[in-house]
Design a protein around this nucleic acid. Structure first.
Lengths: 230, 230
DNA sequence: CGACGACTTGACGTGTTTCAAACGAGGTGG
DNA sequence: CCACCTCGTTTGAAACACGTCAAGTCGTCG
C-alpha cells in the first residue's frame, strides 16, 4: 500500500484546521510542520491505509472522514482499538512496523507524512519532540480507558460510554451522526452486532436516546448516560 | 503520597541493571540518567505509590518487586492496566495528573525521578527525548494488545496469554513464580477470581500446565498455550 | 492448635452470544 | 414508477460461558 506513485499523484492543497476536542495537535509546531511536509491523499470507504506488520514509514492525520485501527485474531475476530476523526493523528508506532491495521471507514482525506521527516524535525526541535511524546501519551490514556471499558463494563455501560465519547468528539449539540457501522461499534466495544443493536433499542425505550435513523443518534438524557458511564 | 520528606529520607545507592525483555530502557542515555538523578525508595506490599488524579510529579522505575497500575469504577470494579516488573519504567503520563493509580504488589524498591528533571534533560538531549517517546509508544502497544485480549478472547485464551507473557517477562525457563494474587490476575484479565482459578485447574487437567503451588506455575505444553494465544 | 487469608470447588443464575429470520432503506433496471 | 435486489440493521429463541453466592480446602503464622 501507499506506493510512491500514489503518493505523488495526490494534490497538495493545505489542511483546514478542524474544530473541537482531544488528540488534536496544538496550534503551532508539529501541526504546522505536518501540513508543510505532508501530502494529502484520498482513501475510499473500506480501503486499507496500512496493514499490521508493514514497515511503518508514515504518520497520518485525518483531514476529513474517519479511520479505524484494529487487530485481528487468526480466526477473524476483530478488535478495533480506536476511531480516528478529523484532526486526529494516528500511526505513531514505536517500532519500525505497524502494530495495527488502519482502514478508512468512509471516503476520507488523510494527510500523510514520512516518519523520517518528522523524527528528523523532532531531533532539531525539542518542542516538536515534546508534542510527539504528548500525543502518544494521549493515545495511551485513551487505550487505558478503553481497557477499563472492555474489562469491566456491561453492554449498557459500554454503549453509554461510546455515545458520550462520540458526542464529544463529533461535537454536534445532542445529535450524533456516526460514520461507522454497527459492526464497527461492536468490534470497538467488544460485543456482537446483535448486542449493540439490542442495547441501543433498549436505551431508546428507556428514553435515554432517540434513533431517528440507524446512523443518527439523539442524546435525549445525558444525565442517564453519564450515570452509566461512572 | 510521596511527601518531600519521604523522598529525602530515601537512600541513594544505585540501581543495578536488571536482566531481560521488553519495556526496558536501552543501555545508555535515559537509563543511566534516571539512575543518576533519581532516588531509591522502598514500598511495602499493597502500599500506594501514587493515586489517580494526583499531580504527576515523578517517573518511576522498578528495581525490585512488582507494581500494578489500575483504574477503579465508582462501585469498586477494578481494571489492572499493567504489571510492572524489575527494569520497567512506569508513570509516563501525558497530562499533569496521573491517569491511573499504582501500588506495590510485593515489597518493592522503586527508583523515583522528578519529571521536571527528565523533561529538562529531554529538552537538551534529543536522544533522551526519543527514548521517552519510544517507551511510551511501547506502553501503548502493550495496551493495544491488552484491548484485543479483553475484547475478544475467552477465559482460556486470556490465561494462556497471561502465562506466556509472564513467562517471557519473568524469564525463568518454564517455571513462573507469580508475584500477584488470583484477584490481581482476574482484574488484569477482566475475569472473576473464580473463573481464573477454574480455568487454571482446567489447563492443568488438559496437561498444558502444572500447579506445584498456587503462585508457581510450570508451563508443561507451550505449544498448546501458544495455540490458544493465536 | 487455632485463626486468618488465599485459593479452590460446587450449584445455580444470567447477560451475552449464537443461529436464524424478518425488516427497511437505497439503488438498479425494466 | 414500481418491482426487485442488496446490504445493513433489528428482532426472536435457544445455548452457553462466565458471574454470583456459598461452602470447603490449603498453607502460613502467631
Amino acid at each position: 500500500m501507499l506506493t510512491q506513485t500514489s503518493m505523488m499523484s495526490s494534490t497538495d492543497f493545505r489542511a483546514k484546521r478542524p474544530a473541537s476536542a482531544a488528540l488534536r495537535t496544538p496550534a503551532h509546531g508539529l501541526d504546522n510542520s505536518l501540513s508543510l511536509i505532508g501530502a494529502m491523499m484520498p482513501f475510499g470507504r473500506n480501503t486499507e491505509i496500512y496493514a499490521e506488520d508493514e514497515p511503518a514509514e508514515y504518520i497520518y492525520k485525518v483531514v476529513s472522514g474517519a479511520v479505524r485501527t484494529y487487530k485481528l485474531l487468526n480466526d477473524g475476530r476483530r478488535q478495533i482499538g480506536a476511531f480516528h476523526l478529523p484532526g486526529d493523528v494516528f500511526g505513531l508506532e514505536a517500532g519500525n512496523e505497524n502494530h495495527f491495521s488502519a482502514e478508512a471507514i468512509v471516503d476520507s482525506t488523510i494527510l500523510v507524512v514520512k516518519r523520517n521527516a518528522v523524527t528528523a524535525l523532532a531531533m532539531r526541535d525539542s518542542e516538536v519532540a515534546r508534542e510527539l511524546w504528548t500525543l502518544t501519551a494521549k493515545h495511551l490514556e485513551r487505550a487505558q480507558d478503553h481497557m477499563l471499558l472492555l474489562g469491566r463494563k456491561n453492554a449498557q455501560e459500554r454503549l453509554a460510554a461510546f455515545l458520550l465519547e462520540m458526542s464529544k468528539r463529533l461535537a454536534g449539540e445532542n445529535t450524533v451522526d456516526l460514520p461507522m457501522s454497527r459492526q464497527d461499534i461492536a468490534d470497538y466495544l467488544g460485543l456482537t452486532i446483535e448486542t449493540v443493536s439490542r442495547t441501543l433499542t433498549q436505551l431508546e425505550s428507556d428514553a435515554a436516546i432517540d434513533l431517528p435513523t440507524s446512523r443518527r443518534i439523539h442524546l435525549r438524557n445525558r444525565a442517564a448516560l453519564n450515570q452509566l458511564n461512572a
